[in-house]
Amino acid sequence: MSYFSDIYRGIKTLLTGMSVTGKYFLTSRKGAITQQYPDNRETLKMFDRFRGEVIMPHNEDNEHRCTGCQKCEIACPNGTIEIIWDRGINENTGKKKKKIDQFVYHLSMCTMCGLCIDVCPTDAIKWGQNFENSVYDRTALTRVLNEPGSELQAGVED
């Protein structure tokens, strides 16, 4: 007798399974979470904490907030950040002071761990939302984050 009950149970469970997938086949668009990338490039908005790449915001006077303290360079586990610094003379006080020449960021080595941004005392660097980082040449992933001719924003160091 178990022979026939097996057949019955088998057919029943198979039909239950088919009803689940059949239901989704008919209502596939409802509750779909698929992002139609790249069609939705214009409307796609990443979460505000999204870790895309490290950026250095500049204000309208082309000033950044990086003092060149190199804490981020020390905190980085992969050697992603390289700060080339120089001692410049402050025009107002005439004192020699450390300032960044180039803030080099190797995106190709970055693991997006966020330790550099965590340790930065002046909030000079933060996460950018851009995630489309594919390039044809690896060297394009090495970036200088401070813009040419940019200066340290006044009042950051105090």
Partner: peptide, 15 residues
């Protein structure tokens, strides 16, 4: 993953 991404910025390697 969306919840994780909103909270800590990454979907898989959260740190």
């Amino acid at each position: 993953n969306d919840i994780f991404e909103e909270t800590c910025g990454a979907r898989l390697t959260m740190n």
